[in-house]
């Protein structure tokens, strides 16, 4: 190991039950991937509900999707892709020990996530204003289909669960900023930033599927 001295100097985070830093890093990352699998399967339940319902009522999905604003959905897709880029740049900056740049990139990620939530808020408010609520609270009469409420129940559950993940991601990235400011992450140890990044990218991947499935039914 060429950087033995650096590694020894910053070894305080190495837990006694790991052989070395690499093993600790790889184990932690694998644990994160296994958690992401449970996330895929949790959203999977909602995707299955979507698929079954769309197979039963294709006409309903075509009709109800017209109520969703493609421009806002597309803007949010671009915002999330930009935020995925900034968190990837933040991890790169930590790996290169450019902590100040990393903090700025993470702050930019939180800002983009906030933008996503604000746009989502206006979308929800616009629908609530028309009486488009999930489930039995649905009072909108602009759609012919008798099962119209069910499309929006699926819509609210999928985008709602995703929105909760965006907020959790914002909190996690905020926590990483605090860690970075305290000097707790650097090129020798950045596992929490790496795992937060993985979580954030998964949130992006889920939106990549939600956008065409909900907004782009033509």
């Amino acid at each position: 190991m060429a950087n033995q001295s650096v590694a020894t100097e910053k070894k305080s985070h190495l837990q006694h039950h790991f052989v070395d830093e690499d093993q600790q890093f790889e184990s932690s990352k694998m644990g994160m991937w296994i958690f992401l699998v449970t996330e895929v399967l949790m959203f999977g339940g909602l995707f299955v509900a979507y698929i079954i319902y769309r197979a039963w009522h294709p006409d309903l999905f075509y009709e109800a999707a017209q109520e969703l604003d493609v421009a806002l959905g597309a803007t949010n897709t671009v915002v999330l892709i930009a935020s995925s880029l900034t968190i990837a740049l933040a991890i790169r900056a930590v790996q290169l020990d450019k902590i100040k740049a990393a903090i700025n990139y993470m702050a930019a990620t939180i800002l983009l996530a906030g933008t996503f939530m604000v746009i989502k808020y206006f979308e929800y408010m616009d629908k609530f204003g028309k009486g488009i609520y999930p489930g039995e609270s649905y009072t909108y009469d602009g759609l012919e289909h008798e099962m119209a409420a069910n499309f929006f129940s699926i819509y609210y559950m999928m985008t709602g669960l995703h929105g909760i993940h965006v907020v959790i991601g914002m909190v996690l990235i905020g926590w990483m900023i605090i860690k970075a400011k305290k000097g707790l992450v650097h090129s020798g140890y950045y596992t929490p930033v790496e795992n937060t990044g993985l979580f954030w990218h998964l949130v992006d991947i889920i939106w990549i599927f939600l956008f065409p499935l909900l907004y782009l039914i033509d």
């Binding site: 991937w33 296994i34 699998v37 895929v40 999977g44 698929i51 992006d204």
Partner: peptide
């Protein structure tokens, strides 16, 4: 390329692909 599976230990890719496999079975 963002989640680095391309450069990672291949085991992580297997774990992730298994989630897709089980989701497919579910569907």
């Amino acid at each position: 390329f963002f989640m680095n599976l391309y450069w990672d230990s291949k085991f992580n890719s297997v774990v992730f692909l298994l989630s897709i496999l089980f989701l497919t079975i579910f569907v």
